[in-house]
Amino acid sequence: MQTRALQAYFGSTHAVRDVSLDFPANEVTAIIGPSGCGKSTLLRCLNRMHETIPLARVEGEVLFHGQNIYSPDVDPIALRRHVGMVFQRPTPFPTMSIRDNVAAGLRVQPGERLDRKQVDAIVEQALKQAALWDEVKDRLKGSATGISGGQQQRLCIARALATSPKVLLLDEPTASLDPLSTQKVEELVYELRKSMTVIIVTHNMQQAARVSDRTVFMLSGEMVETASTRVMFTTPSDPRTEAYITGRFG
């Protein structure tokens, strides 16, 4: 996935300024920066979620498998089925059971309808991948709002994984979680790049250092620096990056 001269606006606010980036396949890319720097907005441009907000608009290109996702013949809904997303706070569907939450994305997939067994197999697979299976396997029919916040967040990850997306976008996925749940999610992110491209927005630099292969640093809507995570955290080339990662601001 790549961005080319990407600009994003909220009305007259210019939130993302001229960002051109490559997100290498099967790697974890972390986007860091102080709050309000446009990192979440950038992420939301990658699956065309930005435009769902009134008065928001996007210019420039985002290439997904070589195709510009902002070209008029692209259906944002079809795109989102290949680009999963997990939000800051857990968002289980309260009217659905745990199983139905995980299977929710499957119901809107094009093509043949899956039978019960196939769905059950995929649900189990996704929950195992999200390291949640053992905790919920006996209560799959239970309410999705009846489990802890950390479990709910992993449920949302499982829901995103069930449709086997090519790219997974994580928007500060551990911001509302306790340390133990955070660790579980981080382990999970680390594993996921074997099968997909992962892009994670975080305000936590230690987390970026722990889970990512590459890191992007943003400031005031601009991309300041991008490099492999090790290089970024040991020998950053831009003084602003250095100032940020050594904790002098932000």
Binding site: R80, G84, T95, G105, V108, A160, T163
Partner: peptide, 28 residues
């Protein structure tokens, strides 16, 4: 909550299914 709509949209739910199957059902 708006976040529930976003979650459905991000999963690839079309607007109409987001409205009817997620939002309306939650408010039922």
């Amino acid at each position: 909550p708006q976040s529930l709509r976003e979650a459905a949209l991000a999963l690839g739910f079309p607007r109409w299914r987001t409205s009817l199957q997620i939002v309306l059902r939650t408010a039922l």
